[in-house]
């Protein structure tokens, strides 16, 4: 027996976890359970990111997705968690239809994934893991360390831009979104009694 490839082993572990809990999200009827499963699925995805060598993105996944997004979701659950809304049943026809469509989607996507020979794996990959936090951080500030010109190390390859502008846009976007969300979700002023009478 060949020795176990631990990378593949952990991939299988995390992949199965992610898939299983993603299915769990679909199947679960309680919103809170859905949230729990989603967390596990997302955390497993973070594990997949680590396996793919994207440690910074993985950490971000945990920090923002799992930490931030889901706390927000749970927040919403708490605010709307009153008896009848926790679970709402859907008709069997809907389920059937959705499954068919999803099946078609999978049938489309999975062959596509295997259609490129290079993507099928099987060859041992380079072993050294490089930290990605610094290149990503510098890249967000406008310099792509990984795209340096071999001839002139002080400059980028022609046409290789970086992500300073998207970064700024996303920052502004986040700010606007937070303000907008706060505005949307604010407590509505109750109508005064006099208005109700009239």
């Amino acid at each position: 027996m060949d020795s176990i490839n631990w990378h593949s082993f952990f991939f299988l572990l995390f992949g199965l976890l992610a898939s299983a809990f993603a299915v769990g999200v679909v199947v679960a009827s309680s919103v809170v359970r859905m949230a729990l499963y989603l967390i596990v699925a997302l955390a497993a995805t973070a594990g997949l990111f680590f396996l793919a060598g994207a440690d910074f993105v993985g950490a971000m996944q945990i920090m923002i997705y799992v930490g931030g997004t889901l706390v927000l979701l749970v927040f919403g659950v708490m605010l709307t968690a009153q008896g009848p809304f926790v679970s709402m049943k859907t008709g069997g026809g809907d389920w059937l239809l959705a499954s068919l469509v999803a099946g078609a989607l999978l049938a489309l996507l999975i062959p596509v994934a295997f259609s490129v020979p290079d993507w099928r794996g099987g060859e041992p990959a380079p072993a050294v893991m490089e930290p990605t936090a610094t290149p990503i951080g510098v890249g967000l500030l406008g310099v792509r360390v990984d795209k340096l010109d071999a001839d002139r190390p002080e400059s980028l390859k022609p046409g290789m831009s970086s992500y300073l502008l998207p970064f700024e846009i996303v920052s502004m976007h986040l700010l606007v979104v937070l303000v907008g969300a706060a505005y949307l979700a604010r407590t509505k002023r109750r109508r005064s009694p006099s208005q109700i009478e009239s």
Binding site: S19, L109, R120
Partner: peptide
Amino acid sequence: LLTEPVGVAHFMVVGAIMFAC
């Protein structure tokens, strides 16, 4: 899968499953 290195396609399968879900 336990003994051979995985490839992009395997990741993409997991992605596809999550997407479909």
